[in-house]
């Protein structure tokens, strides 16, 4: 499967090791913004850096266009520079060109969440794949009951989308709680792991859809905490990560028990993978 060419339209350094790229589709060397992009919240793209390699990166932009029947113009990707490819990606500038395959994979349960309370729990860079879902929930706010975003990260300096989080926190129709694992000095926010936020917020456990994304340990303890509150495992959705080469179920790398994270995931309903989730070295 051949990548399509996209041009970097904007680069934003989010934290010391994370950055956001906005990518516009090209055609014959020209940008074609009008063409737009289409994806569902929770999906990912394979981003190719010329000669360096290709990596799966979740899409973190807004899937719902401002105007009806207009596609969002760009792919937005927030990435943490951890490997060869993502570090090279971190050096891209406005105007640079990269390859994009996708979007791939399953999406967050937008339909199932209608009429329910929504609890989103994000850990670290795990906020990036959840952001499109939040955009969409907010753009159709009347379809949902309470919306809660619980976000935990390492330290105040590691907080992603800081300005946006502040705007969201100011809203009356959205509850946002941020916590960090370690803090000093000027931080007046919460300190403690993200799971400690769960007992502090109010939602109706029997009519709640929970969306979780973060490191696996964080997701395991979050599920435990949600279950303590009475949220059913069929109403808990998690986004998984594994080694991925092809993104279309051929390379075999992303197998997780009987599933392929690339085409059956990355978003899974918890009860459908619970037998494998938490087992060692699956």
């Amino acid at each position: 499967m051949l990548p399509d060419l996209y041009r970097v339209q904007r680069v934003r350094q989010e934290t010391h090791d994370t950055f956001t790229l906005e990518l516009e589709p090209m055609s014959g060397g020209q940008q074609v913004a009008a063409k737009g992009v289409s994806f569902a919240a929770g999906q990912f793209n394979m981003l190719y850096i010329f000669g360096v390699g290709e990596v799966p990166i979740s899409i973190s932009g807004n899937p719902t266009p401002r105007k009806v029947r207009v596609s969002p113009p760009r792919f937005v990707h927030t990435t943490r520079a951890v490997g060869t490819v993502t570090k090279a990606m971190g050096k891209l500038k406005r105007g640079d060109v990269l390859g994009v395959r996708g979007p791939f994979g399953s999406h967050w349960p937008m339909e199932e969440a209608v009429g329910k309370d929504i609890v989103m729990v994000a850990g670290g860079i795990g906020l990036a794949p959840l952001r499109p879902a939040l955009y969409q929930f907010l753009s159709q706010r009347e379809n949902y009951n309470r919306i809660i975003l619980l976000y935990g990260t390492r330290s105040p300096a590691d907080i992603l989308y800081r300005r946006e989080l502040e705007q969201w926190r100011a809203r009356f129709d959205l509850e946002v709680q941020v916590t960090v694992d370690q803090a000093m000095g000027a931080w007046h926010g919460n300190v403690g792991v993200v799971t400690t936020l769960i007992p502090r917020v109010s939602f109706d456990p029997l009519r709640t859809i929970a969306l979780i994304c973060g490191p696996e340990i964080m997701m395991r303890f979050t599920i435990l905490e949600l279950q303590k509150r009475g949220v059913g495992k069929e109403n808990i959705f998690i986004s998984m990560e594994r080694n991925m080469k092809c993104a279309i179920g051929f390379c075999g790398h992303c197998q997780f028990g009987p599933t392929f994270i690339c085409k059956d995931g990355p978003v899974f309903r918890y009860d459908r993978i619970q037998e494998w989730f938490g087992k060692r070295e699956i």
Binding site: Y48, G51, G53, E54, K245, C246, F250, C251, G252, H253
Partner: peptide, 26 residues
Amino acid sequence: CFCTTVEDVTDLTGEHAERWRKWDSC
């Protein structure tokens, strides 16, 4: 068994890149 990996390579000039797919093993 069908698993593969991919290798992205360039030549010395950095002007040409290729993607190769190779049998891989779990």
